[in-house]
């Protein structure tokens, strides 16, 4: 048997899950299992208790309320791909999901699981950062929210306490006619991205960019919001030149070296991909069809 021994719990409501989590010393939460299960199978983790969140219906929903889109943490990636609410309000999520694993993993993987695992090259944390998501967190002690920007504490570690569960993610949709693009480079489709970029733009009638969000994934230990680049493109009356200049700023970002590629290579990729994403988002915003 591959996984180490543990006690298994499958609570039927959030309250029971929170109770278990508060009381167990060395517990792991099981969401879609696409990261925890491999770690169990390889015996990288030895939890005494596994608390399975898959039988808690209140954590799986996609809803729209007072102009905000709220996604339950246990909503599966395949459900997001097919959701009309997401397609209408946050289409960049759907564009990014194409790069998240494969059909078989998206059928199980959840948005909350992906955010909490917080792999530096994962697409969903990058997009959540770009959309200024609000993370809803709960424990026996109460509920709180955290801006996505403050969610990563350090490498692959969210800023949540051991007794807390992420219950939902909330987005404020961009105006209907915004432009968006998610582009990434990986060795093969579905592999971890070497660099991924999420861009959202609002373009005014005169062709200038009035609002911009640019986020890089895979470059640093957590998604990086490129505020300097955003400032360059916003308000410029020569959008094309501004987009080139903005992309160029990515060359200065402190990028990780790892056994796959060097930091310098990541910086080069970040420049190229940011420009590509900016142009694609811009074309979409002005109503041109993009490939």
């Amino acid at each position: 048997m591959k996984p180490p021994p543990f006690h298994y719990h499958d609570p039927r409501c959030l309250d029971d899950a929170l109770g278990l989590l508060a009381e167990k010393e060395n517990a792991k939460l099981l969401a879609g299992g696409q990261s925890l299960m491999p770690m169990l199978n390889m015996r990288f983790v030895f939890p005494d208790d596994v608390i399975d969140l898959n039988r808690i219906p209140e954590l799986t929903s996609i809803g729209e309320d007072e102009g905000l889109v709220r996604i339950g943490a246990m909503t599966r990636q395949c459900a997001l791909e097919r959701s009309e609410v997401i397609r209408d309000h946050c289409p960049i999520i759907i564009e990014a999901l194409r790069y998240v694993g494969h059909i078989q993993t998206r059928n199980r993987g959840t948005i909350g699981g992906s955010l909490c695992h917080l792999d530096p090259s994962a697409e969903l944390p990058t997009v959540a950062q770009g959309l200024d998501a609000t993370i809803h967190i709960q424990s026996k002690r109460g509920a709180r929210t955290l801006a996505m920007e403050d969610f990563p504490a350090f490498y692959m570690t969210p800023a949540i306490e051991p007794d807390e569960i992420v219950t939902a993610v909330e987005f404020a949709p961009w105006p209907k006619d915004h432009g968006f693009a998610f582009v990434e480079f990986a060795r093969r489709l579905g592999d971890f991205a070497i660099v991924g970029v999420a861009v959202l733009l609002v373009v005014s009638a005169d062709g200038s960019i009035s609002r911009a969000s640019i986020t890089l994934g895979g470059v640093g230990q957590a998604p990086i919001r490129c505020t300097a680049a955003e400032e360059i493109v916003t308000g410029s009356n020569d959008s094309d030149a501004a987009m080139r200049e903005a992309a160029e700023t990515c060359r200065k970002i402190d990028a990780m070296d790892d056994l796959h590629v060097s930091g310098v290579y990541r910086q080069k990729l970040a420049v190229a991909l940011t420009l590509r994403a900016l142009r694609k988002a811009y074309d979409r915003a002005i109503g041109e069809s993009v490939a």
Partner: peptide, 26 residues
Amino acid sequence: EHGVCGACTVLVDGQAVRSCLMLAVQ
């Protein structure tokens, strides 16, 4: 047995999933 090769794919309630990444109890 850790979710990379896809050989273990089966359908659970009609959806293709990696059976090495799911517990039988689930």
